[in-house]
């Protein structure tokens, strides 16, 4: 009799533990809205007349830029006008029907925009303070993630934190060689937790708006790596079930933070 009660208690205890384990680990919290309600991240070439879509490369002409290989051009000559006889009276010539902005096109006068690369990521709620390195795209077309599982990688082709769109920072959850990565605790971030990103021009502060486990097959890269719209900080690692046959997690943990 005593043993039966013991077995029953044991069984119930296991069930309770299971329930607690499942309930205590909410997969998704808060709001994770990768796409922007105002502007989509889709490409804009060609069809639309949006001048920001394909503007001439004149955004920040550097006044200190050295002149091109050729000397500063002399004042342009004016072709003889089509009319015969003495100099024309300008007042009779038509005016352009629309105002077309014109820019200097000389390559030598173009200054590439200054990029402030993030170098530190702080997650006070997790007591984490990580180096950030700039990463790009690997040979398979996937985002590079820093080799060192203690580093975070900022996607350098996308926005910097605070610029329009999603600034994406990824880190390893684990590695076969190095063990657990710093980002394995990303799943513990809660709505309202603060995040700080530092670069050489200062620190941006963010607050977690949501966390979600996204099936990799359902991940929309164009939304994750959005280039326009509201500034967001997006932290990414892997999580969920592990598929040992391909040595890969089936999901991504995605944390979205809004600027404070």
């Amino acid at each position: 009799m005593a043993t039966r009660v013991l077995a029953a208690v044991l069984g119930i205890a296991f069930l309770l533990v299971a329930a607690v384990l499942v309930v205590d680990r909410p997969v998704d919290v808060g709001q994770v809205d990768l796409s922007s309600p105002t502007t989509s991240g889709s490409r804009v070439a060609g069809a639309t007349p949006d001048p920001t879509a394909a503007s001439g490369p004149t955004a920040n002409p550097d006044p200190t830029a050295t002149p091109g290989p050729t000397a500063e051009p002399s004042p342009p000559r004016r072709l003889a006008t089509a009319r015969q006889g003495p100099a024309p009276t300008p007042s009779t010539a038509p005016t352009a029907v629309r105002d077309v902005p014109v820019h200097d096109a000389r390559l030598a006068d173009q200054a590439p925009p200054t990029v402030h690369v993030p170098d530190r990521l702080r997650l006070p709620a997790l007591d984490l303070d990580l180096p950030v390195v700039a990463v790009g795209v690997d040979d398979d077309g996937q985002m590079e993630v820093p080799e060192d599982v203690g580093d975070a990688g900022w996607y350098r082709h996308g926005p910097t934190p605070g610029d329009p769109g999603n600034a994406v920072i990824a880190g390893h959850v684990d590695s076969r060689v190095q063990g657990l990565g710093a980002f394995h605790r990303l799943v513990d971030l809660q709505v309202g937790d603060r995040v700080e990103v530092t670069s050489d021009d200062g620190t941006t502060t963010w607050v977690v708006a949501g966390r979600r486990l996204v099936d990799k097959a359902a991940l929309d890269p164009s939304a994750l790596f959005r280039r326009s719209g509201q500034p967001r900080l997006v932290l990414v690692t892997c999580g969920g079930d592990f598929d040992g046959s391909v040595r890969s997690y089936r999901s991504n943990v995605v944390v979205v933070a809004h600027p404070v």
């Binding site: 804009v44 684990d174 063990g179 657990l180 079930d241 592990f242 997690y249």
Partner: peptide, 20 residues
Amino acid sequence: TGLQDAPAAVPAGNAGLVDD
């Protein structure tokens, strides 16, 4: 500008240490 495709994926783990 604006011709880019996003990276296809974010592969950020290969050990299964936190396998749900």
